[in-house]
Design a protein around this nucleic acid. Sequence first.
DNA 1: CTGAAAGCGCTTACAG
DNA 2: CTGAAAGCGCTTACAG
Lengths: 346, 346
Amino acid sequence: MKKSSSKSGQPLLSDVAAAAGVTLATASRALSGAYGVHPETRKRVVELAAQLNYKPNRFARGLVTGRSNVAGLIVSDICNPYFAEVARGVEDAAFASGLDILLCNSDQDSTKQMRYVNSLMEKRVEGIIMSSVANLTREEQSYIAESGLPVVLIDCFVKRNSFFSTVSADNELGGELAAECLLAHGHRHIVHFSGPGKHGNLFMRASGFLRAVRQFGRGAEASVVHGAHTLAGGYEMAKKLFHKLGRITAISTANDAVAFGVIKAAIEMGVRIPKDVSLIGFDDVEVAALVHPPLTTIRQSKHEMGVAAIEILLRHSASKDHTPEHRLLGVTLVERFSVSTLSPRK
Amino acid sequence: MKKSSSKSGQPLLSDVAAAAGVTLATASRALSGAYGVHPETRKRVVELAAQLNYKPNRFARGLVTGRSNVAGLIVSDICNPYFAEVARGVEDAAFASGLDILLCNSDQDSTKQMRYVNSLMEKRVEGIIMSSVANLTREEQSYIAESGLPVVLIDCFVKRNSFFSTVSADNELGGELAAECLLAHGHRHIVHFSGPGKHGNLFMRASGFLRAVRQFGRGAEASVVHGAHTLAGGYEMAKKLFHKLGRITAISTANDAVAFGVIKAAIEMGVRIPKDVSLIGFDDVEVAALVHPPLTTIRQSKHEMGVAAIEILLRHSASKDHTPEHRLLGVTLVERFSVSTLSPRK
DNA sequence: CTGAAAGCGCTTACAG
DNA sequence: CTGAAAGCGCTTACAG
């Protein structure tokens, strides 16, 4: 007697039920671990399923349960080590809970991002984690919020956000720490390379930075330059600056990627760090310790942030209560060799 | 009249059909772009669907079509920039074709990897792309092959592979290029830091390397050290080596991550690169240009490899012919500042 | 503890 | 060009 199976050739639950001499219902219950199945029966079904290489069709299951066991993760660009580390945290926590992750690169492009959001909704994901995404318009926010899908934003400030959970580093404090470090080393003419004007969390870093200079700088001067918050952006900003450094002795950057761009420009133009200018980054990405020179920077807990995001997502997808939850994670200064000490009266 | 909708609150195709005054079948055809729908009708249906925020339930569609429009991507660790760049290529090509990507980190752990494979199969993915995965046993290979799922391996050598498509860099040539570079700079006592013994593509690099030394080295000596092919592995191997450098003047590594580990150890132990030892990597990851010193390395086309993998995957998932296809991509030497020239008779 | 049956929300022959 | 109906492969009340 030939075994019946789907047109795809895959064995079906009915195949294992038949083999075990029970009905579909019992086979289903045995496999799902539900109560009310005789241990013997369960054992037989489970064994047969394994033997036949039975794989439940998730479409069918999803159609009735409404659950996908998949979460969406939208990052700007997985090639940026910062996002890679966050993604790893997300993925580790997800794996531990039996969730799979759909990866999306937005490139900070809001059209692309909304295409992904819609695609994720069609796939009935359990929720969406967005890390430093393109700015959502008010309409997009409510569009997503109304869908009822749990959303958690990682290190992504949204104005008047009443919809989404967030997990962030303490960006303002980080900015302050960076400023204090530079000040403590005697720098009094400082530039902060920030992201594009409206980028929320980078704005927090800049404002923490400026506030600390104003507060503790005893007249030290700090200015902010806006650019892309990428390696390329840092490269551009640094090229321009290096042509006329003037009295500037130190650069603080919105993130390590920008700092790497500064380093690249410095190598090309023969500017020595930290002899000619000091440099401090933000993120403490793994390679920060390996660049030339090893980068002094502000560390944030990227892996933990990913893990926290999954925790919140899971809690929300399990209940109907989606009250936003906000988590703020600490930051610390890690000193390496890109900041030099200036003699008091330069 | 209240609109009927699913228990999840999402509007259904029947809602838009009703609103448009047509049947389910027509609504479905209008939305799917199939032939045989009056333009006017289609227009009406499409507009209503948009207006109602209708999102097709992919479970239902998948159940009948058998297609998911999702591909699986298994990498060792997305935090390794090499995999991040490959993943980006995969993702870009996938996005262009309307495919979504399920990201899996195997950590080179074959249990974890097989758990992922099974999970991907249950989700009826269009195929699986594996990048430098844990070694598959013969049984695992046929298990996967028998499932009929298209698989493409990226830069991952499998012994006597008759099942899976592959896209690889020309690893042997890369090894040769690295050796020739070192030889040309006068080095005659060289160590190659390879991965764990059995790792296929790294083995190719090592053997290309050794062959070139033998062939063109006029008596130069090269030895191979095996370790983890990660930053940590490179760090370990370098620490050990730096304690007794002996006559060694150059190190070649299986990949850039290992080279970064060597750099880390060098910084810690006060070994100067390239003054005390020269160093050449493999991959040409973005940050290779930024480390201390900027790394001379072998470039492979990571993004292109990801794109090629999706191309093959798509072709195979569209037809029933899964004849394995093999693609070999070129490599080039990129010289930076981590290799110094030795005087002839050291 | 097990079975018979309905139903999840679509797509797709088959008629007309 | 459109409709009525079957069916994709499961899970889950509802009975027994």
